[in-house]
Nucleic acid binder design. Structure first.
Length: 424
RNA sequence: GGAGAAAUGGCAGAGCGGUCGAAUGCGGCAGUCUUGAAAACUGUUGAAGGUAACACUUCCGGGGGUUCGAAUCCCUCUUUCUCCGCCA
């Protein structure tokens, strides 16, 4: 959520930058917000004045009662009836404007940072880094869903029986590889200074609001309606919400957390080759890294996180590229996002395996996550996060890129975790 | 799931319906003293809106109510604790 003050003081700039994100109603919504904010301040002044008057009278009555001047007190009491009515009216209209402002404010996406390229679709994303050669596969190389069946690693049909499409069952060495990825990613993150946390996978409405999933994107999450809890689409939600309503010390920053969780996404409306095999699931595993940072440092930290994720892909010997997302392809809450894509040789396409973002103060404003700076002022921190990494497409590309006529070779870095170096 | 008790500042813990944003202690910060540190002493120490700065307003788990006036009374929700039941 953008800060009201900022919108008020930089109206034209805000509208211009929202255009980079292709937010169509920018002009009208921002103008409306500024207008309502003006009303709000007028009403607040009136409300405060009435309250101040009422408070003063109440104080007088108190003193009169104490000194036994009952009659005088009664006289003043008579005057308060009118004030009470006014107070009620002002309070109501204040609540209304504030509600209206809030309802508009939560619809406004974050401003893209100055370096975000313009554009509408994934075609407009800019490749900033590439690494690794695309391997040449032998004759008859197969996509991962065929390999998974051939070596009995993943059973998609069984998942359909138990739950539905998008909920695979990992078996044998397939399950063991999942466990290997979990430990490998967590060990790496911990070594990098991220403190591991194990958060709940169901969160309440406040948490959903804090990171920006609610109120508008609730269709993406599974909702346990009886208890009004949401299954998390990413560990970002519970981990970032740890810092909701918290005032940190400047010396606490940056806070670095990592966590492994299951992630659940409804992904309504997806179909076709995109959802084949492990490409897009309703339930998947992911290790997430989250940082709460000083505003002056957040962009340097974003680069550090991007490089850390790249180092994981190098360790796994996967060919990848890093994209800087264009305005139109960035998420609602992000100011700058890098996507990491691994090349899946058998499918001959790039698969997104990580997304690293700086949200600046967009989430922390919702979360009320602040710190006291050197001047003793309380200011919003910045929040960042990245996948490090999401398992399914990593597993898919490991299977596809390392297949040989003799079997599938496991990347060296994973062998100690998997306990085997070949699937055959 | 049933019965009872509670929820106050970073923590602990007072608080008769009136001057309580809240005693006191601890912690934090600044200073005095000291070669330095500790101790001791002194001062300071919540958040939001608002203002050029003051003023002023709001917040004692959340929401509603009673009252001229609510941390204090009432209703409700949530959470925590104790007892019973169930249970990995």
């Amino acid at each position: 959520m953008l800060q009201l003050n900022y919108i008020r003081e930089n109206k034209e700039e805000v509208i211009k930058r929202l255009a980079v994100k292709n937010f169509k109603d920018a002009e009208s919504i921002i103008s409306k917000i500024v207008e309502l904010d003006g009303n709000r301040r007028t009403i607040q002044k009136q409300t405060d004045d009435v309250k101040a008057e009422a408070n003063a009278l109440a104080k007088q009555i108190g003193e009169l009662m104490k000194s036994g001047k009952k009659d005088e007190a009664e006289g003043i009491k008579a005057k308060t009836a009118d004030l009470k009515l006014k107070e009620k009216n002002f309070d109501d209209s204040l609540k209304n404007v504030e509600g209206d402002i809030h309802a508009l404010l939560v619809q406004v996406p974050n401003l893209p940072s100055a370096v975000v390229p313009a554009g509408r679709t994934p075609e407009d994303n800019v490749t900033v880094f590439e690494h690794g050669d695309i391997p040449k596969l032998h004759e008859g190389a197969q996509p991962h869903w065929e390999l998974a069946a051939k070596y009995d690693l993943i059973d998609f049909e069984l998942g359909v029986k138990l739950t539905g499409a998008g909920f695979p069952v990992y078996k044998g060495k397939g399950a063991r590889l999942q466990r290997a990825l979990q430990n490998f990613f967590l060990d790496k993150a911990t070594a990098q200074g991220y403190m591991e946390v194990q958060p709940p996978v169901l969160v309440n409405e406040d948490s959903g609001f804090g990171t920006g999933q609610l109120p508008d994107k609730e269709g993406q999450m599974y909702h346990a309606t009886i208890d009004n809890l949401y299954l998390i689409p990413t560990a970002e939600v519970p981990i970032t919400n740890i810092y909701r309503d918290v005032i940190l010390k400047e010396s606490d920053l940056p806070i670095k957390n990592c966590g492994y969780t299951l992630c659940f996404r409804r992904e309504a409306g997806s179909y076709g080759k995109d959802v084949r095999g492990l490409n897009r699931l309703h339930q998947f595993d992911k290790v997430e890294i989250v940082q709460i940072a000083h505003p002056d440092k957040s962009y340097a930290i974003l680069e550090e996180m991007r490089e850390y994720v790249a180092s994981l892909l190098k360790d796994l010997e996967l060919p990848f590229r890093t994209l800087k997302l264009c305005g139109g392809d960035m998420s609602f809450a992000s100011a700058l996002t890098y996507d990491m894509e691994v090349y899946s040789t058998a499918q001959q396409r790039w698969l997104e395996v990580s997304s690293v973002s700086n949200f600046e103060s967009f989430q922390t404003n919702r979360l009320k996550c602040r710190f006291k700076n050197a001047d003793g002022k309380t200011v919003l921190a910045h929040s960042l996060n990245g996948s490090a990494l999401a398992f399914p497409r990593i597993l898919a590309s490991i299977l596809e890129n390392n297949q040989t006529p003799e079997g599938i070779k496991i990347p060296k870095a994973l062998v100690p975790y998997a306990g085997f170096d070949m699937i055959s």
